[in-house]
Simulated assay, not measured.
Amino acid sequence: MSGPKVVRIVTREEHEAICRGMLARIDAALEQWAETGRRNDCLDAPTVEAACRRRDALAALAAEGKFAEMQAQAPAEESFLRSDMRFRLEKAAAAKAAARTHARRRCEAVETLGRAAAAAGVVLSNEVMRGLADGEEAALAEGFRALAASRPASGRASALAEQLSRGEEALSFANWLAAQPAAPTDPDVERIEARLDELLALGHVRDIASLRTRVNEAIEAPSPRRGLILDGLEVETGRVLAEARKAADLRTALRVLLAEMAQAGLPVASFTVSEDAAVVSEVIQARLATAEAVLAKHRAHEAASARRAAIMTGLAGLGYEVREGMTTTCVANGSLVVADATRPGYGVEVIGTSDGRQFQMRPVAFDASGDPADTSRDRDAETVWCGQVSVKPPPN
């Protein structure tokens, strides 16, 4: 008889399991994406609905048996959700920085108004004073109107007061404030504050209050001390942010992996980590590595079982005598021989690897005691076997 033929097996069950796992990962990534977006007010309902539709389209591909398409598109969608959220968090941080700058300019306007009113002898009402203390733009506008009314109607201030008093849309106080030259800013302070905003967006609230206090201290400090405080904050915030980013990426990776494990029916409680920012990256990395190993072992076992079952089912369909327990025998011994029910004295030997990914199969003849070998029948049996099995050459 001829040598063995090598057959590589990839079952439908294996493809379906992979697709289910990918969908579980996307569901977890989508949930985290939406949660983070809502927490930082940087996602709207139509955007979330569009992401859900893309997820459903991937599920439809799997249901239609378009496994290759689904498995090619799913990782791209998961990657998009991660990168899109980073982009949105950056925009949210920029918006917070702009709001902070506006608030500072408003405070400067309050101080300017107070000095100008005192110098002009203008008495502002208690209501306006309370509004100024709260930083209300309406109170600022009222104060500027009172100040302008006490002076000759000339110049830019009088024009502003006239427009405000008439209620015209030509120029609001907010627009006027925005049009004023920006006060000099310290790029070191802005960079450190941006880091704090990103830490807050990542949910890393530990030490934020103390760091902000030190930033405010630096803003008010004289030049030599200011530089020392900012140098220290530069180092510390850089270190804390790098750790927070790494931990956030690892948490996301662990979250989607545990979703995939749960979908496969594996327990995940022992691999979870708390949301406490005090949990260091090394702990999360260790849990992630262990969970990956457990899932890989489970997937390999399930795939191997499905491949062996597929071989046995195929041989039974070709008329070979496949009995219960033969799959287990193949696992234990690494090989088995099944008889051809339609051709007595002949069968097929199946030799499989431990992972069931490759099988060697060859026709065999059973020795009959005292009977000489019939080479003609052997050739016929081999010809029939080659016609039954179509084998593609393995890829390079």
Results as ranks from 00 to 15, higher is better:
residue 4 P to T: 06
residue 8 R to A: 02
residue 8 R to N: 02
residue 10 V to D: 00
residue 11 T to W: 00
residue 13 E to Q: 14
residue 13 E to H: 05
residue 15 H to Q: 11
residue 16 E to S: 02
residue 19 C to W: 02
residue 20 R to M: 01
residue 24 A to H: 12
residue 25 R to C: 01
residue 27 D to E: 14
residue 27 D to C: 04
residue 28 A to V: 15
residue 29 A to P: 06
residue 30 L to P: 07
residue 34 A to W: 09
residue 35 E to C: 05
residue 46 P to A: 13
residue 52 C to Q: 15
residue 52 C to N: 11
residue 56 D to P: 01
residue 58 L to R: 02
residue 58 L to S: 06
residue 65 G to C: 04
residue 66 K to A: 12
residue 81 L to K: 10
residue 82 R to E: 12
residue 85 M to H: 13
residue 88 R to S: 10
residue 88 R to Y: 08
residue 90 E to M: 08
residue 94 A to N: 13
residue 96 K to I: 05
residue 102 H to R: 15
residue 104 R to F: 10
residue 108 E to P: 03
residue 112 T to K: 14
residue 116 A to Y: 02
residue 119 A to F: 01
residue 123 V to W: 02
residue 125 S to E: 13
residue 129 M to K: 11
residue 130 R to V: 05
residue 131 G to S: 09
residue 132 L to C: 08
residue 133 A to Y: 02
residue 136 E to W: 03
residue 142 E to N: 08
residue 143 G to V: 04
residue 148 A to S: 14
residue 155 G to I: 08
residue 157 A to E: 15
residue 159 A to V: 11
residue 162 E to S: 13
residue 164 L to P: 09
residue 167 G to I: 06
residue 167 G to T: 09
residue 169 E to R: 14
residue 170 A to K: 14
residue 170 A to P: 01
residue 172 S to V: 09
residue 175 N to D: 12
residue 180 Q to T: 08
residue 181 P to M: 11
residue 182 A to L: 10
residue 182 A to D: 10
residue 184 P to L: 13
residue 185 T to W: 00
residue 188 D to I: 06
residue 188 D to V: 12
residue 189 V to C: 04
residue 193 E to P: 01
residue 194 A to G: 15
residue 198 E to C: 06
residue 199 L to E: 09
residue 200 L to Y: 03
residue 209 A to G: 13
residue 213 T to V: 05
residue 217 E to H: 12
residue 218 A to D: 11
residue 220 E to R: 15
residue 224 P to K: 08
residue 235 V to P: 00
residue 237 T to D: 07
residue 242 A to M: 04
residue 243 E to F: 05
residue 244 A to N: 09
residue 251 R to A: 05
residue 252 T to A: 12
residue 253 A to C: 06
residue 257 L to C: 04
residue 258 L to R: 12
residue 258 L to M: 07
residue 261 M to K: 10
residue 273 V to H: 11
residue 275 E to L: 12
residue 276 D to V: 05
residue 278 A to D: 11
residue 279 V to C: 06
residue 287 R to H: 15
residue 287 R to N: 14
residue 293 A to F: 02
residue 295 L to F: 04
residue 297 K to P: 00
residue 300 A to W: 00
residue 300 A to D: 01
residue 300 A to R: 14
residue 302 E to F: 01
residue 304 A to L: 05
residue 307 R to T: 00
residue 310 A to S: 12
residue 312 M to H: 07
residue 312 M to S: 09
residue 314 G to W: 06
residue 314 G to A: 07
residue 316 A to N: 13
residue 320 Y to H: 04
residue 322 V to F: 04
residue 323 R to Q: 14
residue 329 T to I: 03
residue 333 N to Y: 04
residue 337 V to G: 02
residue 338 V to Q: 10
residue 342 T to M: 09
residue 345 G to A: 08
residue 352 G to K: 00
residue 354 S to C: 02
residue 357 R to Y: 00
residue 357 R to C: 01
residue 361 M to I: 13
residue 363 P to S: 08
residue 363 P to E: 00
residue 364 V to E: 03
residue 373 A to W: 00
residue 373 A to Y: 01
residue 374 D to F: 02
residue 383 T to R: 13
residue 386 C to F: 12
residue 393 P to N: 07
residue 395 P to A: 11
residue 396 N to C: 03
